[in-house]
Amino acid sequence: MREDSHRIRKMSPADINSVQDIERISFPDPWARETLEEALVTFSDTVFVAENAKGICGYIICGVEDTGEERYGHICSLAVDPESRKHGVGAALVRRAENAAIIQKATAMQLEVRVSNSSAISFYTRLGYEPVFQICGYYSNTEDAIVMMRWFRY
C-alpha cells in the first residue's frame, strides 16, 4: 500500500488504542476508552477505520436511529490523523458510513459540529450536508453545535 493511499474497513477491538490516540489529538473533549468500546459494540455495522502504510489514520463512529417515522444515520465522531488530512480520508470514511446507513434503510445522515469549527463545517458542506438548526450549550464547554444533515435520494 502506498503511503498516501488508504483503505476503509470495519473497526475492531484491536483498533481502539489507535482510535483513542487520534481522538485525543483531534478534540478538546475526547471520548473515554469505555465509550469507544461501547460504540464499537453498539454500532458494529457502522463504525470504520481508515488505514494507510503507517497504520490507522482515521475513523468514523456512526449509528442508525429509528424515530418511528424515519431512520437516520448519525455521525457521532469522525477524525483523521493530522498527517493524513487533506488526502480524502475523511470523505471516504463519511461515504462508507453513509452507505452502511443506507443499507439499514436510513433516509438521511445527521451530525453535530461546533459553531467555531469552520473547517469541519466547510468539509461537511462540500459533502452535501446542510445546517438545519443550532443547539445551545451542546458541548462540555457550553459551546453551541450546528446540526447538519444530508438527505439521501433513492
Rank of each mutant, 00 (worst) to 15 (best):
R7L: 10
H74A: 05
K54S: 07
F27C: 15
V47G: 04
R71L: 15
S44T: 05
L127E: 08
V49R: 13
T142R: 05
S26N: 13
R95P: 07
I103W: 09
D15R: 12
S26F: 12
L111S: 04
V64S: 10
M1N: 06
T46Y: 13
S122F: 11
L127T: 07
K54T: 07
R9W: 12
E70F: 05
S122W: 08
G63W: 03
D21W: 00
R33Y: 08
A32P: 04
E69D: 15
R95N: 14
L40W: 04
D144M: 08
D144K: 04
R114D: 03
I56A: 09
A145D: 02
V132T: 07
I146L: 12
R114Y: 04
V115E: 13
E3D: 02
G88C: 14
A145Q: 03
E83T: 07
K54H: 07
A14K: 15
E130A: 15
M149W: 15
N17E: 05
E3C: 03
V80E: 00
I102K: 00
V132E: 03
G55Y: 00
D29E: 11
V113Q: 01
Y154N: 12
D21C: 01
P131D: 15
G55K: 05
E69Y: 06
N99E: 11
K105H: 05
